[in-house]
Lab assay of single mutants.
Amino acid sequence: KPRTPFTTSQLLALERKFRQKQYLSIAERAEFSSSLNLTETQVKIWFQNRRAKAKR
């Protein structure tokens, strides 16, 4: 499956949310993903990858 090209504004929103909170609840993820026009899976995986990056 092809890589999702996130827009700059989506990335800024994702990073801002990640700084507030590294783990989103299912409800938060649902609301946040629809506000960004992304799927919940895209947001879930982005947060997983971002947490992995933060550990490195």
Score class of each variant (00 low, 15 high):
Gln10Arg: 00
Gln22Pro: 14
Lys55Gly: 14
Arg29Cys: 15
Glu15Asn: 11
Ser9His: 15
Leu11Asn: 09
Leu38Pro: 00
Trp46Arg: 02
Lys53Phe: 09
Ile45Tyr: 08
Trp46Ser: 03
Leu11Gly: 05
Ile26Tyr: 13
Tyr23Phe: 15
Arg19Ala: 14
Ser25Tyr: 03
Lys44Trp: 09
Phe47Gly: 02
Thr4Ile: 13
Ile26Pro: 15
Gln42Arg: 04
Lys17Asp: 00
Gln48Met: 07
Arg51Gln: 11
Val43Tyr: 01
Lys17Glu: 04
Leu12Arg: 08
Tyr23Leu: 06
Pro5His: 08
Thr39Ala: 07
Lys55Ser: 13
Thr4Lys: 04
Tyr23Glu: 15
Leu12Ser: 06
Gln10Asn: 06
Phe18Lys: 01
Ile26Trp: 10
Phe6Gln: 01
Leu38Asp: 02
Pro5Arg: 03
Ser33Gly: 12
Lys21Trp: 04
Phe32Ala: 03
Arg3Tyr: 14
Leu12Pro: 01
Ser35Arg: 08
Val43Leu: 05
Arg56Thr: 15
Arg29Ser: 14
Leu11Asp: 12
Gln42Lys: 06
Ser34Ile: 13
Thr7Asn: 06
Thr41Tyr: 11
Ala27Asp: 13
Thr4His: 08
Arg3Val: 15
Leu24Asp: 00
Gln10Ser: 02
Val43Met: 01
Leu14Arg: 00
Leu12Ala: 14
Arg19Pro: 01
Gln42Thr: 09
Glu31Gln: 05
Ile26Glu: 14
Ala27Ile: 07
Arg16Asp: 13
Val43Pro: 02
Glu40Asn: 03
Trp46Thr: 00
Ser33Thr: 03
Thr4Phe: 11
Ser25Leu: 05
Ala27Thr: 13
Arg50Leu: 04
Gln10Leu: 04
Lys21Cys: 15
Arg16Gly: 12
Leu38Phe: 02
Ala52Asn: 05
Gln20Tyr: 07
Ser25Glu: 11
Ile45Leu: 13
Tyr23Thr: 11
Ile45Met: 07
Arg29Gly: 12
Ser34Asn: 08
Phe47Lys: 02
Ala54His: 07
Leu24Ala: 00
Phe6Trp: 05
Ala30Gln: 14
Arg50Cys: 01
Arg56Asp: 10
Glu28His: 02
Lys17Val: 09
Phe18Pro: 00
Gln20Arg: 05
Arg29Ile: 14
Ala54Leu: 12
Thr8Ser: 14
Arg3Leu: 13
Ser34Tyr: 09
Lys55Cys: 12
Thr39Leu: 05
Arg19Asn: 14
Leu38His: 01
Lys53Val: 13
Thr8Cys: 04
Phe18His: 03
Lys44Leu: 12
Gln42Met: 11
Ala52Phe: 05
Arg51Thr: 04
Lys17Gly: 03
Ser34Asp: 07
Glu31Ser: 09
Lys21Gly: 13
Ser34Leu: 10
Thr39Cys: 10
Phe18Trp: 07
Ser35Gln: 12
Pro5Asp: 10
Glu40Arg: 03
Ala13Tyr: 11
Arg56Asn: 15
Lys53Gln: 15
Asn49His: 07
Thr41Arg: 04
Thr8Tyr: 04
Ala52Cys: 08
Lys1Ser: 04
Ser34Pro: 11
Lys44Gly: 10
Leu11Trp: 03
Arg3Ile: 15
Phe6Val: 03
Leu38Ala: 07
Ala52Ser: 12
Leu14Val: 00
Leu11Val: 10
Asn37Met: 04
Gln42Ile: 06
Ala27Met: 13
Leu12Gly: 10
Ser9Cys: 09
Asn49Arg: 05
Thr7Val: 06
Leu24Val: 05
Gln48Phe: 01
Thr7Arg: 01
Glu15Pro: 05
Glu15Thr: 02
Tyr23Gly: 07
Ala52Arg: 08
Ala54Arg: 05
Ser33Arg: 02
Arg50Asn: 03
Ala52Pro: 02
Phe18Tyr: 15
Glu31Asn: 03
Ser34Glu: 13
Arg51Lys: 06
Ala54Gln: 10
Lys44Arg: 09
Ile26Cys: 12
Phe18Ser: 00
Gln20His: 12
Lys55Asp: 15
Ala13Gln: 12
Glu40Ile: 01
Lys53Asn: 15
Thr7Phe: 02
Thr41Gly: 10
Arg16Pro: 01
Trp46Glu: 03
Lys1Ala: 04
Thr41Leu: 11
Ser25Pro: 11
Leu38Tyr: 01
Leu12Ile: 04
Thr39Trp: 02
Gln48Trp: 05
Leu11Glu: 14
Arg56Leu: 11
Ile26His: 13
Arg19Gln: 10
Ala27Trp: 05
Arg16Ile: 08
Arg16Thr: 14
Ile45Gln: 13
Thr41Asn: 14
Glu40Val: 04
Leu38Gly: 02
Phe6His: 04
Thr8Ile: 07
Thr8Trp: 02
Thr4Pro: 04
Ala13Ile: 14
Ala30Ile: 14
Ala30Met: 13
Leu24Met: 09
Glu15His: 00
Asn37Gln: 09
Ser34Cys: 08
Phe32Asn: 05
Ser34Val: 09
Ser25Gln: 04
Trp46Asn: 00
Lys21Arg: 10
Arg3Gln: 14
Glu28Arg: 01
Phe6Thr: 01
Glu28Gly: 04
Lys44Phe: 07
Lys53Cys: 13
Ala54Pro: 10
Arg29Tyr: 15
Ala30Arg: 10
Tyr23Asp: 13
Glu15Val: 02
Trp46Ile: 00
Arg19Ile: 09
Leu38Cys: 07
Pro2Glu: 15
Arg29Gln: 14
Gln42Val: 11
Ser35Glu: 08
Gln22Trp: 07
Ala30Gly: 11
Gln48Thr: 06
Val43Thr: 02
Trp46Gln: 00
Trp46Pro: 04
Phe32Leu: 13
Ser33Val: 03
Phe6Arg: 03
Pro5Ile: 12
Phe18Asn: 03
Arg16Ser: 14
Arg19Lys: 14
Arg51Ser: 07
Ile45Trp: 07
Arg50Gly: 02
Gln20Ala: 07
Thr41Cys: 13
Lys55Met: 13
Asn49Tyr: 11
Ala13Lys: 04
Ile45Ala: 10
Arg29His: 10
Ser35Asn: 06
Phe32Arg: 02
Arg51Pro: 03
Tyr23Ser: 12
Leu14Gly: 00
Ile26Ala: 11
Leu38Arg: 02
